[in-house]
Amino acid sequence: MTDLGLYRHLDQMAPWNDRLQVLEVTGVTDEAPDVKTFTFRSDNQTWFRYKPGQFVTLELPTPDGPLMRTYTLSSSPSRPFSIAVTVKAQVGSIGTRWMFDHLAPGSHVKAYGPGGDFSLHSHPAAKYLFISAGSGVTPMMSMLRWLNDCAPWTDVGFVNCARRPEEIIFRKELELLGGHMPGLSLGFMIEERSSREGWYGHMGRIDAIRLPLLAPDFREREIFCCGPDPFMRAVRGMLEAAGFDMAKYHQESFAAPTVEEIPALFAAPAQDGVAVPVEAATPIRFALSDVDADCVAGQTVLQTARASGVRIPAACEFGLCGTCKVKKVSGSVEMSHNGGILDHEIDDGFILACCSKPLSALEIEA
């Protein structure tokens, strides 16, 4: 018998809260070689509110301890009862391989987010061009699925590059959407032929000659690009050389932060056998953990927490993903983030621990 209590209207439900609820796996789908889509629902009948193209950070409970991995959502917020990430297991990947081996329908995983500003909602335009390679197609798919549901007449060019035909992620769905969306123009490009299926489309790598063939009016479009860093550098350089207005170019990247050397608390040469402190440390109280710590000059709140045995989840560690968001009860900080926190959250007293340095004694709700 169908559980009639399972369904509630959207206005009867609250939005998903990443601090209170976890995700339950509802499906795992093979998309391409070493590529799977994991679909989730809330464990508490809540709905998901996000912009197409945003990401979430999953906390994977591996045997060596929690592992934080950030993945772009491939699902669309126009279908708010579930979310999905589509991930590719690269050579040597740890988190994605763990997901492949351990996540199945019924599994539960903690997640944080959504976050990020890589969305057509943040850059409205009359015409779009989505350029992607490999698993970089995921935010493009999220945005295209939203357009198909909410504005199917939109003029959008969709260019995807892959090594072989069978490695084009979402190919069948994209071709289906191409028949439903009158303004959608699809362009696939592969680097080498395959013995598994024939190919009669574009071959090679995207360059200044092939781009105008795939999108003749690319200079008139708002361009979104996602893929491996060398791919995005090549696209950016090609557009700059073509005189494209780079204010209309946007790319998604989870670049590694620059490692900052943290000065020692007693870094000055010893005088008469006694170390001389360079600068006094700033006290931080982690209220929920009941821990008092000293923050060395130059350290972030996150670094001090780790040194004191206080666990604050963190993934990117350069102010982008928002995973390390914590409530500041008192005190002041200097925070240099990259979009991982909203203005109203800052007004409410939240900070990103990874990029906040104390200016006074602090009390943190962690």
Rank of each mutant, 00 (worst) to 15 (best):
I262H: 13
E240F: 13
G243V: 07
H250C: 02
A264R: 00
V274Q: 06
Q271I: 14
A242K: 06
A242Q: 11
A247H: 14
R233P: 11
P257N: 03
P257M: 07
V274W: 08
F266S: 03
D272V: 04
H250G: 03
E252D: 08
R236P: 03
I262M: 12
V274I: 08
G273M: 04
A268Q: 08
P269C: 01
Q271F: 13
A268W: 05
Q251F: 15
K248N: 15
K248A: 15
E252Y: 01
A264C: 00
R233E: 15
A241M: 11
K248E: 12
F266V: 09
A247W: 12
D272Q: 10
L265F: 07
G273F: 08
R233N: 15
P269I: 00
Q271T: 12
M238Q: 09
G273R: 02
Y249H: 08
G273D: 05
K248C: 15
F266P: 02
V274T: 10
G237W: 04
A267P: 00
M238N: 09
Y249T: 03
P263K: 02
A241H: 14
F254V: 01
T258V: 11
A267G: 09
P269T: 05
A264I: 00
A241N: 13
G243A: 06
A255F: 13
F254Q: 00
A247K: 13
A247Y: 14
A234N: 14
H250K: 00
E261S: 15
A255T: 11
D272L: 10
E260Q: 13
E261A: 15
E240Y: 08
A268N: 09
A242Y: 10
F244M: 04
D245A: 13
S253Y: 04
P257Q: 03
A256E: 03
E240P: 04
A242T: 05
V259L: 10
F266A: 10
A234D: 14
V235T: 06
A247G: 15
M238E: 08
L239K: 00
G243R: 04
T258L: 10
F266M: 03
E261I: 12
Q251K: 04
M238K: 04
A270W: 01
P257C: 08
Q251R: 05
A256Q: 01
